[in-house]
Simulated scan of single mutants.
Amino acid sequence: MTDGLTIGRAAAFAGVTIKTVRHYHRHGLLQEPRRDRSGYRRYGSTELLRLVQVRTLAAAGVPLAGIGPLLEADAEQFAAALVDVEQRLTDRIEELIARRDTLHRLAEGDRALLPDRALALLDRMPGLGFTPDEVAASREGLVLARALAPEGVDEYLTALERAFDDAPFIALIRRCGEAMTWEPDDPRIEELVTAMAEAFLASPERLKNVTSFQARTETAIRYRLISRFGNQSPAGARMSDLIEAKLCSAGVPIPHP
C-alpha cells in the first residue's frame, strides 16, 4: 500500500482546491513532496499539517506573503503577528460596513451624496412653496457644491437653515424662481435684483448664502460653477450678474474669472 495522499485527496482533506494547493507551492508556502514509483506526489502527515496551517491562516486574512514568516516565528512573534492581522481584519470589516451603508444610502437616492442636514432642508422646501423642479435643482446644486467645495458646505447649510426661517427672504427667493421664465430684459428684474441685494446687505447671515464658498473654492471658476448652477436661463444669469455687481459695489468680494 502506498503511503500518503494524492494532491486531489490532500486538497479535499484540507478543504481547498488542487489549484489552491499548487498556488501555495508556487509561493513557497508548501514544499512539493517526492513522487512515488508511479510518478504521483504523495502528501504525508507533515505536508498535510503544513497545508492545513497555510489554508487556515489564509482564510483568516493573513496575506500569502506573510504566512511563511508567521509559520517560522516563535510563540511570542506569532502572537504579536496575529494581533496585527486582527487589527487589519477589523479595519477591513469597518471598511466593508461603510461600503454596505453607502449601498443602503444609494438605494434611498440622495443619501449617499448629501448629509442629513441637506436632506432635511430639501424635505422642507415643498412646504415653503417651492416647486418640484426647484427642489430638484437645489438638490443637484448641493451635490455639486459639496463636490467642488466640501469645506464650505456646513456654513452654507447653516445659512440656508436660517434663511428657511426667514419668511420675507423666502418670498424673495421664490420670486426669483418665478423670474427665471421672464425675458432677460424684463424691467421687473431690476426691481427684484435691488430687493435681493438689499436683503443680503441688510443681514450678515443672509449674505452667507452668497459668501459661504468664496474663501474655499480656490478659483473664481469653481465659485461660478456653484453660483450659476440653477440660474442657467437668460433671466437667471442676468439676475445673478446684477446681484453680484450690486454686492461688489457695496464692498462684498465676489470672485470673477
Rank of each mutant, 00 (worst) to 15 (best):
T181V: 15
M180Q: 10
S203L: 05
E218W: 00
F229I: 06
L142E: 09
E108R: 06
R224P: 08
T90L: 11
A145F: 00
E140L: 10
D185W: 01
M180Y: 09
Y223F: 13
F130K: 06
L114M: 13
P132M: 04
L121R: 05
A179H: 07
M180R: 10
G177Q: 08
D110F: 05
P150A: 07
I189E: 09
A136L: 11
I226T: 02
D165R: 00
D186Y: 03
A167P: 11
A215S: 12
G177R: 01
A199N: 08
A149H: 06
T217G: 03
Y156G: 03
L157Y: 01
C176F: 00
L144C: 04
L192D: 04
D186E: 08
E178L: 13
L122I: 05
R175V: 10
C176L: 15
T211G: 09
E161A: 12
T102P: 02
R174M: 14
T181N: 13
D110Q: 04
A147C: 07
E183H: 08
E218H: 01
R174W: 07
Y223R: 05
L113A: 07
M125S: 10
E151R: 02
F164M: 15
F213S: 15
L96E: 13
L119G: 15
F130G: 15
L172M: 09
T217D: 08
D166G: 04
T194D: 13
L225P: 03
A167D: 13
E94N: 14
G152R: 00
T131P: 10
E95L: 14
R188P: 08
